[in-house]
């Protein structure tokens, strides 16, 4: 647990980067700090490992005030990942990863052996271990950056815009792997991004910062989408919050109708194995535009009902056999009830 207690950072020219910030970052979860540029999110992050010292207030990690701690030792106990990775160009990949254990006094040989294992963990091959950073793509460099941060197995990781410098396709892959890795490791992660979609996708908790280093809202992403505390947060979260919020809702409770049901004059046509072929109507066979599995989010189902010519989403089982239909009207009614319950419960 990382606690900010009335932390202020004021620069000599009077600029307030962070103002009276109090927040608690829970252990074992991803907390994303997000906000427009100049909102103090990076400053707040960098105060956790004393790259920047606050003007007033205190920060505690697991109850211990970090103010008096040796900055170098503190930083070695906290993983640090930054935009563009910041790898050491003169060291090979494996030696980059071994940096912190060697600083901690581990033998180079032992540290390298551990580094090889970590490289595999972040999705790199052992063949890359002897390359230099200049020989890697941006995405590969960032993986090495993550491996370097994990090398000393720190309980806390700080990540400053870790996925911003890579192209969208690579970013998507890195984000997925990051979530998978966190599922295995369960670190306390504090991440900074300016991208609200990334924050909502990756964060267990999202802290929205406003200009002048004010924490506007700290809550779970679905809560942020459903109940922004003020106009600033609502504006920052952006359009389609209702729709995006559906990502966090499951589809298990939706009323499913049999696959044989006729919808809007169309009937689902199946192949011999029971897999959906398309919607059969007067004009011939129309495409289903995809199907969903029982574990998919409400957003996926809603999207399918919007795309389907019948206005109904097709649910399939693990083998791809159609086992139910969900109509647009069913989804709409379900979402309405859900929203009513949510707003009713927060107001009471």
């Amino acid at each position: 647990m990382i606690e900010f207690d009335d932390v202020t950072k004021r620069y000599p020219d009077g600029t307030v980067a962070v103002g009276n910030l109090s927040m608690t970052i829970p252990t074992g979860a991803i907390t994303v700090l997000v906000g427009p540029s100049g909102c103090g999110k990076t400053t707040s992050l960098r105060m956790i490992n004393r790259m920047i010292d606050p003007t007033s207030g205190s920060i505690r990690i697991d109850g211990e005030d970090i103010t008096g701690q040796d900055p170098a030792l503190l930083r070695r106990s906290i993983g640090y990942v930054i935009q563009h990775a910041g790898l050491f160009p003169h060291r090979t990949v494996v030696d980059n990863v071994a940096t912190v254990p060697v600083l901690e006094g581990m033998s180079r040989k032992q540290a390298r052996a551990a580094a090889y294992t970590l490289l595999e963990r972040v999705g790199l091959t052992a063949g890359m271990a002897d390359r230099y950073p200049v020989q890697l793509s941006g995405g590969q460099q960032q993986r090495v950056g993550v491996a370097r941060a994990l090398a000393a197995d720190p309980p806390v990781m700080l990540m400053d815009e870790p996925f911003s410098a890579v192209d969208p396709v690579v970013r998507e892959g890195l984000q997925q792997e990051f979530l998978r890795l966190q599922g295995e490791l369960g670190k306390t992660i504090v991440m900074v991004t300016h991208d609200i979609d990334e924050a909502i996708k990756l964060g267990d908790h999202v802290a929205v910062f406003a200009e002048g280093g004010r924490l506007a809202q700290l809550s779970a992403p679905e809560e942020l989408l459903a109940n922004p505390v003020d106009d600033f947060v609502a504006g920052f979260v952006g359009r389609d919050r209702g729709y995006r919020g559906l990502s966090f809702a499951g589809s298990a409770d939706l009323d499913v109708e049999p696959v044989t049901t006729e919808v809007e004059g169309l009937r689902l046509s199946l192949d011999d194995a029971g897999r959906p072929l398309g919607w059969a109507g007067v004009g011939g066979l129309l495409p289903t535009e995809g199907s969903y599995h029982a574990g998919d989010s409400l957003r996926v189902v809603t999207d399918l009902t919007l795309l389907s010519p019948a206005g109904a989403a097709v649910r399939v089982d693990a083998e791809g056999r159609a086992d139910g239909l969900v109509r647009q009207s069913t989804v709409a009614a379900y979402v309405r009830r859900r929203q009513l319950g949510r707003l009713g419960s927060t107001e009471s």
Binding site: M51, Q83, L103
Partner: peptide, 15 residues
Amino acid sequence: VSDVTVDAARGVGMR
């Protein structure tokens, strides 16, 4: 030497 590299060096705990 890139500022990013130096920032990383300091951030991982080098003196």
